[in-house]
Write a protein that binds this DNA or RNA. Structure first.
Lengths: 120, 120
DNA sequence: CTTACTGTGAACCACATGGTTCACTATCAA
DNA sequence: TTGATAGTGAACCATGTGGTTCACAGTAAG
């Protein structure tokens, strides 16, 4: 369960950078080398390597080096846990807002009733 | 569209801390003051205030100060965009893995056919 | 009025992040 | 062999982060 939290930390942190989200998008359409990615995102090889390492650490990307080129592709983790976390909280959110809506409706009805009583 | 990326940055960054996710969980069940939250998460008021500010910045929490106590509650943003982003990428992931599965199936069938041809 | 409580802001600290340059290794190709 | 290419690692830098302490302001309550 400790791992679960640490993994959420790592994944959300990995996703919190626009370049890394871009890399994931790119890898979604085709695999790429470090050089490819560095060029596409106007960055040094070293810089891109760091991003890729972070994504790899989070399990979002896997890489394989053959010859001198390291090919990056989407990893095994498909963000199930993160999606589940967000979905759970969306439901919590909704539940609370729905409750609020109901309360408002209730108050409205009550107000209307009071109003009518007053008129009599 | 720039705002969209910046907002994803802010939200994912906000979610990448276990304390802040905890605060969201807490606020999911009931509103709380800074003091409440600070106690629950064993932290100074100042420290908790910072977390709350970050969540507020990301639109995940709203606060209101009445008298000397600031009450924190869940914000208006319900992580729709983040859920959508993740969902889109889960689909990309799936599509690619499905393609891989198909390829594997194709190769298996081919192998089997070759195998049978060989046996004759 | 005095005291206690809730929050805020500034300053500080250690450490992480996002990026660079530079020096180096390993591989491919002529 | 020579040269270009792809990546790696160490060192560095500015800035951000997660936390603290301390001093202070506003509010509540005796």
């Amino acid at each position: 369960m400790v791992h679960y939290q640490a993994r959420l930390d790592a994944t959300f942190a990995a996703l919190s950078d626009v370049t890394r989200r871009g890399v994931l998008e790119q890898l979604g359409s085709s695999n790429a080398s470090i050089t490819d990615l560095a060029q596409r995102f106007h960055m040094t090889l070293t810089g891109m390597k760091k991003h890729v390492s972070i994504l790899e650490q989070a399990g979002l990307v896997t890489t394989e080096k053959v010859g001198r080129v390291r090919t990056c592709k989407l990893g095994q983790r498909r963000l199930e846990e993160e999606a589940a976390w967000i979905e759970r909280h969306r439901q919590l959110w909704s539940a609370r807002f729905d409750a609020l809506d109901e309360l408002v409706e209730h108050l409205k009805r009550k107000e209307k009733a009071d109003d009518q009583r007053k008129r009599r």
